[in-house]
Write a protein that binds this DNA or RNA. Structure first.
Length: 526
RNA sequence: GGCGGCGUGGCUCAGUGGUAGAGCAGCGGUCUCAUAAUCCGCUUGUCGUGGGUUCGAUUCCCUCCGCCGCUACCA
């Protein structure tokens, strides 16, 4: 068992708070959360960071539209974001806002260190500036040579002095790192893309802007502010106190075990970020996991096209665990997934209501109905019948492997086929509802086995469906011999020794548990 | 254009040099503890196209068709 001192640092991308999160954002947080919860079960000391990326032009624009000052606006958005994450039972241990002083302090310290090391230089940038947008435009954005948002205005050629980071100096070292650390970029397809990118040659990148009041001033030139990407990436170390008076957390948790990000920002995390760290002489994160996107019935999620779905709507309709289950099971984390309400209802009814919830109902009901919830003498029963032919120790290892690799869909599929289907089949084959009429002891034997299956389910679902898992684990007196807080996968192999008789402790109504996942009637329209 | 990936039953996907599997959906049957759930059985596939290698390819190679990702400095 891993030492409780063994740190595990996991992060998600920080989000632009220029609008509320959509289900794609939620997908990332839930995937990271499953990993965080899993690592806690392994005894790791998990630090799980999330946050918002607030030092951007769009944030100011949005605040201005609403007639607000930037800071109250971003604070309110941070509150709204965290409200969503709380609703989805995301167990982050910190939430950083890049407008916070800890981020400003650490970022200034960092850029100064890179500057002092000679990796930053000043250069004049020339570009097309749109007065309407108060920003530069790329050639690609232009429509008929003009800003798409301000067609009536001419674009101006403007020169500006900015600071640049010598990214080009790091190509060889980056390639060497990819080669010697193949686990640095996952999934593998992303690694190939990044290697390709770096091999094709890196150019120096500008890392500051002139004349912005919102943002982090460059310490060696206060007229400039640190450009968003250089700024944003630093949240991973500023959040844990890099550059502050107390670097205890930084020393404990850095380098991070994994940055969980969307596939669109892989290059920033796998090329720019490690180069920045090299420039500052800091260790690199152990790995970056780039997950896929969620589409709305095959359509890209886009606010302007109206295809964005608010996680809160889904959550309020279906609940936290069904929401989590859908994305963890239906959308392979490393690939793109799809969301549709039809599919949601299908999966909910078949996997959660019919299979998982029903196993719970029928098991508890029989225990209560036949034995008043007390399986007297069951402490001596060794519940091996239900899992005959299955090596749970091996299964625990297999699942451990899958979850470590973010293969949640595969893991859940395995739990369903190996545990839940097996338990339901066991009931059908042993027919405890008939045994009770002929052989009370044999019936009790079967129910004791089912109690163990419920225990195993409670343990295995813990990283994915924490609420449901806890309900399962607390439906019998399992806590008497194994605390809910200290469960790990290996414990599925055998019930704890010295355990008391099984006793139902689940909440009941008229002798039955309430349906955990009430069946949803599929909508008949469309 | 360059690099890479994909194209398998209605849907989502797995898979192997010897002519294919799972889950869901659908259909039929069954038990009755349970959320009309469970359990059992069944149907559907030219494994994108055309070639090649091979005794034999869905699996290896090439052409083509279709789809997708990356192609950095959103200044």
């Amino acid at each position: 068992m891993a030492s409780s001192q063994d740190p595990f640092y996991i992060t998600t991308a920080i989000d632009y708070p220029n609008s509320r999160p959509h289900i794609g954002t939620a997908f990332e947080k839930i995937g990271a959360d499953a990993q965080a919860r899993f690592q806690r079960m392994k005894g790791r000391d998990v630090h799980f960071l999330m946050g918002n990326d607030e030092n951007t032009i769009k944030v100011i624009q949005r605040a201005t539209e609403l007639g607000l000052e930037p800071k109250p606006y971003v604070d309110d958005m941070a509150r709204q974001f965290q409200e969503v994450w709380t609703a989805l039972n995301v167990s982050n241990t910190d939430f950083i806002q890049t407008s916070q002083s800890r981020h400003h302090i650490g970022s200034r310290k960092f850029i100064q260190a890179v500057y002092d090391a000679g990796h930053i230089f000043k250069k004049t940038y020339t570009g097309l500036y749109c007065n309407g947008c108060e920003s530069f435009k790329t050639e690609k954005e232009l429509i008929a040579g003009r800003c798409p948002n301000h067609q009536s205005q001419e674009l101006k050629q403007v020169e500006e002095e900015n600071y640049f980071f010598r990214l080009s100096d790091f190509a060889d070292r980056l390639l060497e790192h990819y080669r010697t650390h193949p686990e640095f970029i996952k999934p593998d397809s992303r690694l190939n893309e990044i290697v390709n990118l770096v091999e094709s040659g890196l150019q120096d990148v500008s890392i500051s802007r002139k004349g912005f009041v919102w943002g982090i001033p460059v310490p060696f030139d206060e007229d400039q502010t640190i450009y968003v990407w250089f700024d944003a990436l630093l949240n991973y170390i500023t959040a844990i106190g890099y550059g502050s008076d107390d670097e205890t957390l930084y020393l404990k948790y850095w380098p991070a075990d994994v940055h969980v990000i969307g596939k669109d920002i892989t290059r920033f995390h796998c090329a720019l970020w490690p180069a920045m760290l090299m420039a500052a002489g800091l260790p690199l994160p152990k790995s970056v996991y780039a997950h896929g996107f969620v589409y709305n019935k095959g359509e890209k999620i886009s606010k302007s096209a109206g295809t964005a779905i608010d996680p809160m709507t889904v959550y309020q309709t279906f609940g936290t665990d069904p929401f989590r289950y859908y994305f963890l099971k239906e959308c392979v984390f490393g690939s793109d997934g799809n969301f549709s309400e039809e599919r949601f209802v299908e999966l909910y009814n078949s996997d959660l209501a019919n299979n998982l919830g029903n196993l719970y109902s029928r098991t508890i009901s029989m225990c209560v109905r036949y034995f008043e919830g007390n399986l007297e003498g069951s402490s001596t029963i060794n519940p091996t019948d239900w899992k005959s032919g299955l090596d749970l120790g091996e299964l625990a290892n297999e699942l451990d492997d899958l979850v470590s690799r973010f293969e949640y869909s595969q893991a859940l599929q395995t739990i369903w086929s190996q545990i839940l289907d097996r338990a339901n089949r066991y009931i059908q084959n042993t027919e405890p509802f008939k045994l009770i009429k002929t052989d009370r002891e044999a019936c009790k034997q079967v129910l004791a086995n089912l109690a163990d299956a419920i225990r195993v389910t409670g343990i295995l679902l813990k990283p994915f469906l924490p609420g449901t898992a806890e309900t399962f684990y607390r439906s019998f007196n399992f806590e008497d011999s194994g605390s809910w807080d200290s469960l790990d996968f290996q414990q599925i192999a055998n019930p704890p020794s010295g355990r008391p008789d099984y006793r139902v402790t689940a909440a009941l109504e008229a002798g039955k548990p309430l349906p955990m996942f009430p069946k949803i009637q599929p909508s008949t329209e469309s």
